[in-house]
Write a protein that binds this DNA or RNA. Structure first.
Length: 374
DNA sequence: AAGACATAATGGCTTACCTCA
DNA sequence: CATGAGGTAAGCCATTATGTC
């Protein structure tokens, strides 16, 4: 049994990435709400998209790779990803991650003394460090310094930016990024990691992007990072955590939904037991009352519903089965936003009790649109 | 000041893909 | 050409750590 429910717009999960092409779509996006639907169970695996650009980025988790293979990988990366060739424009929000203390000019001196992590706004540094003329080329390297490794990474960045090597290739930038990551790891034994607090604008921007696509390709990651003046790794982590939050909320929704299903079925079970007892009692008191002709009850093979040809039987069925229909209708009207709230509806992926024939109080043609021949 | 909560960040694991012998 | 090993990168998950209320 598979329950396919989605938090948020399920459709976007399988939607092709569109934020680079048309950011305006975001404006008329519905708010991120809950929706239950069948399609969601199939999480869109971004690999299909990402694999095409897979080697385009590397901002973490290659810390222990040897330099030879890393260099080769970087060569491949530099061939596949070019942060300068795509005029990516994200117009979702104004790009205003203005440093809070901008007048404190790039005080690299602070980094030099290896003691800059305290009191330094991790939100600030990329904006301070970015030089417009080369922001495109160096965004990856630029934004690669983990905030918790400010000392070492800033020294690294300082070296990059203070040196004459303005024409450093992406390979070198990636290597620097890698080095920064390593430095961040090595930094663990020293100072505690500094937690970044995203600004409202940054969060909103990321949220809007997440609505469009809950996973990122390397290009998208870089574009977002550039737009928000964050490190790609930070964008990546944000999306990862965001997916985790979505999943958690979805799990809660699923639990609630299954609870309601359980309650509904329990109630139906209780009612059927009661009905059975009544029928048994009736049969005991009047053994001939319930003896129906064998041909009276027929089951539709397609819908598994019992159609009655005898009016008396139909009437008898009606009196006993009405609560079910009422309960089902109630459940549907209260929960159904996308025609998926019926606990036994196939659209939800749930097939509770679908294998047993169900009695419905209505005449068959009333509930079943198609005509039956015999 | 302490605790609860939200969330950024980390490390381990899995999976898919690529390269090469 | 097919195949298995090794490497790489990305995502998920559990967890930690930190900032905020």
């Amino acid at each position: 049994m598979e329950l396919g429910l989605s938090l948020g717009d399920a459709a976007t999960a399988s939607k092709p990435f569109g934020f680079m092409e048309k950011s305006t779509k975001l404006t008329n996006k519905a708010s991120l709400g809950f929706c239950m639907g069948l399609s969601i169970g199939q999480n869109h695996t971004p690999r299909e998209d990402e694999d095409k650009e897979k080697h385009g980025n590397n901002d973490h988790k290659s810390d222990n790779t040897n330099t030879t293979t890393t260099a080769e990988a970087n060569k491949r990366k530099s061939l596949t990803v070019d942060t300068t060739d795509s005029p990516i424009q994200l117009d979702l929000l104004p790009n205003t991650p203005v440093p809070r203390n901008r007048n404190s000019s790039p005080t690299y001196v602070v980094y030099d003394n290896g003691n800059m992590s305290r009191g330094f706004d991790v939100n600030r540094f990329p904006a301070v460090m970015v030089h417009e003329d080369q922001a495109d080329q160096d965004v990856a390297a630029l934004s690669s310094s983990p905030p918790n490794s400010a000392t070492s990474s800033f020294q690294m960045d300082f070296c990059m930016y203070s040196s004459k090597g303005r024409s450093e290739s992406h390979n070198e930038a990636d290597q620097a990024e890698r080095a920064s990551s390593r430095a961040s790891d090595e930094d663990e034994n020293g100072s505690a990691r500094k937690k970044l607090r995203l600004s409202k604008d940054q969060s909103a921007f990321l949220e809007e992007s997440f609505k469009e696509h809950n996973t990122l390709t390397p290009k998208q990651k870089l574009a977002l990072a550039k737009e928000l003046n964050l490190r790609p790794r930070q964008v990546e982590v944000w999306f990862q955590n965001r997916r985790a939050r979505t999943k958690l909320k979805q799990t809660e929704v699923d639990c609630e939904y299954l609870k309601r299903c359980c309650e509904t079925l329990t109630e139906e079970n209780r009612r059927l037991h009661k009905e059975l007892q009544e029928l048994r009692a009736l049969k005991t008191s009047n053994p001939f009352y319930m003896q129906l002709p064998a041909t009276t009850l027929t089951m539709c093979p397609s819908c598994e519903r019992v159609a009655t040809t005898s009016t008396s039987t139909a009437a008898a069925t009606t009196t006993t089965a009405t609560p079910t229909a009422t309960a089902a209708t109630t459940t549907t009207t209260t929960n159904n936003q996308n025609n998926t709230a019926d606990p036994t509806s196939k659209t939800t992926g749930l097939s509770l009790g679908s294998t047993r024939p169900r009695f419905y109080p209505f005449s068959h043609t009333q509930t079943h649109p198609h005509q039956h021949t015999a």
